[in-house]
Design a protein around this nucleic acid. Structure first.
Lengths: 315, 315
DNA sequence: GCAGGCCATAGATAATAATCTATTTAAGAC
DNA sequence: GTCTTAAATAGATTATTATCTATGGCCTGC
């Protein structure tokens, strides 16, 4: 039996012939002419190499080999029919796999979003890759994930980014810090303080640096620490001041205060980023759509960025 | 997903691509060029309507839909592979269905033959249709069975018949009949006896009638009975004489004797009959072959006809 | 920065398949 | 017997497939 030139069309016609018990009848129901179907059956018989049908008592009957083949054909068509259903689900984004690259800072918000999405689309499987900005940028350029969450999206033509969640950066101090007592503080008054900072390249650091240089300020005493949590704990212990995402602060129970410095908190956002040069899977699109329409269900509305609507737009 | 123009060839190529993880590699192993395979994959993707493969890290990887499709394809190919094995068995006649039309007289021999054949080819399924000669002749002309067993094969060009088993017709009488005492009896001396006969058209009757008319003899006192068993019992009870197949006599324990009449037993045979205008299934051919070569295993050699070898011949 | 893989695309061709209409054959039904 | 219905065959046409060679683009490793 040489399967090469066997097409599914032929099998469909064959099934119809068996089911109607007649070549002419099958032809009618398939909107074909009788000779067409007759010929197809001939070809199928040649492909299999044994007669599948025989005239019995004026009617078409299956041979022994024929009924085995019929069973095989039913099984095969049924299998692809099942696949067709699965495919349909995948098309509607009800099913599939989404890979997400997320910068460390966002790790406090993302679970709530995914939790909500899971309720919505339980069959969508999500792989979450968390790393610092440099790592996620690398994943982005290698096209390793479908969607990314950055505080500071990479640049380039094939980047599509939309701010979805506000990420205010607070200037924090240990409880009882002298500046916390004051109604207003000018940043220059803090020049003598030690600042605990994330590594250069991290979005928080970039935002702070930008803010400083816009004002011609420079810090004298800084220490670099690569973890928001460690920074938070260190500030609480009185090791210095820091600028941190408000989301990071929500997590801990340490005794911290915000300093009433002009211009703080620095407003920034998390951006949902995807690549224009890569088609999103339906499942990923379903996630985007979920964020666009239902984000307020799992995130407090106050945190949701203004221009979220743009997500569904063309760009 | 439109299956119509999907061919198994395409699926084979696809499997090879997935398995080798590379289009070029698959092309080499299938003795095709790389663009051919590339194009086939493109067509397959169009057929399914979703990408199945994607470049991941310089290698081909399956998408989520792709791996579902791969599974479906494996299942489908596996199913037809199984069918291929079944088909191969059928080709070797190891499996299949044989329909057999048998005249009543032969019902004593046929079980032994089929018993032997069952040992030989346990997966061949046999349907046995037993009837009187008229009934089996009708089945023959309607092509209802694959093979037939007749004492007197029908005539016609498309009849292929071979004598396989001897069927001597004995002239029998009840034990103690006067003629049984004699060393030799001339048939004319029995003219006054009553003869119990099968219906006209039965092979036993035909053979006897032929023998009688060849000698210009006629019977005065006959009675027609349509069953060999009833005739046998009736003869034993003294209701008359009869001509019966020796096989029929073997069965009963009644007190019967053969009369030493010149020319008896009448020699006749059972014929294995098939139609030239109908292709025999491999299973049926296996049965024919079995009869040609192994009949002596289940039937006493003395009963086997001389020209059995002809069975396997061309005609 | 260039050679060597690998994939994709273009353009061409021969083979095959899918269909049709018209005709022939076979079998069954009054 | 003729009428009907179903199947097979012939002959023709168009669409699709299965291939090829040649070429362009993209990474990777040296």
């Amino acid at each position: 039996m040489d399967l090469r030139h066997l097409s599914f069309r032929l099998l469909q016609v064959y099934l119809q012939v068996v089911r109607t018990g007649s070549i002419s009848e099958a032809a009618r129901s398939l909107h074909l002419t009788q000779p067409t179907v007759s010929l197809q059956m001939k070809k199928l018989t040649e492909t299999v190499g044994e007669p599948l049908l025989e005239m019995q008592d004026g009617k078409l009957a299956m041979t022994a080999v024929g009924s085995e083949f019929y069973r095989a054909t039913c099984d095969v068509m049924g299998r692809f029919e099942d696949f067709g259903h699965t495919l349909e689900e995948a098309r509607q984004g009800q099913w599939g796999h989404v890979k997400l690259g997320v910068v460390t800072t966002a790790k406090y918000v993302i679970p709530r979003i995914l939790g909500g999405f899971y309720q919505h689309r339980p069959k969508v499987d999500i792989t979450l890759n968390i790393g610092n900005r440099a790592r996620i940028l690398e994943r982005f350029s290698n096209q390793e994930d479908d969607l990314y969450l950055f505080s500071h999206p990479p640049s380039g033509q094939h980047v599509r980014a939309t701010a979805i969640i506000r990420n205010p950066l607070q200037l924090i101090a240990p409880k009882g810090h002298w500046a916390a007592e004051r109604e207003a503080v000018d940043f220059s008054e803090l020049k003598g303080e030690r600042f605990l900072m994330r590594e250069p390249g991290s979005a928080t650091r970039m935002a702070f640096d930008t803010w400083l240089s816009a004002r011609g300020l420079e810090l004298n005493n800084t220490q670099q620490i690569e973890s928001n949590e460690v920074i938070r704990l260190s500030v609480a212990s009185g090791l210095g001041l820091a600028v941190l995402s408000a989301h990071t602060l929500d997590e801990g129970r340490e005794k911290l205060v915000q300093l009433p410095v002009q211009g703080f908190p620095l407003e920034s956002n998390w951006y949902l980023v995807s690549r224009r040069d890569r088609r999103l899977s339906q499942a990923a699109q379903a996630l985007v759509e979920y964020m666009a329409t239902d984000l307020t269900r799992c995130i407090e509305p106050a945190w949701v960025s203004e221009d979220l609507r743009k997500l569904l737009g063309p760009g």
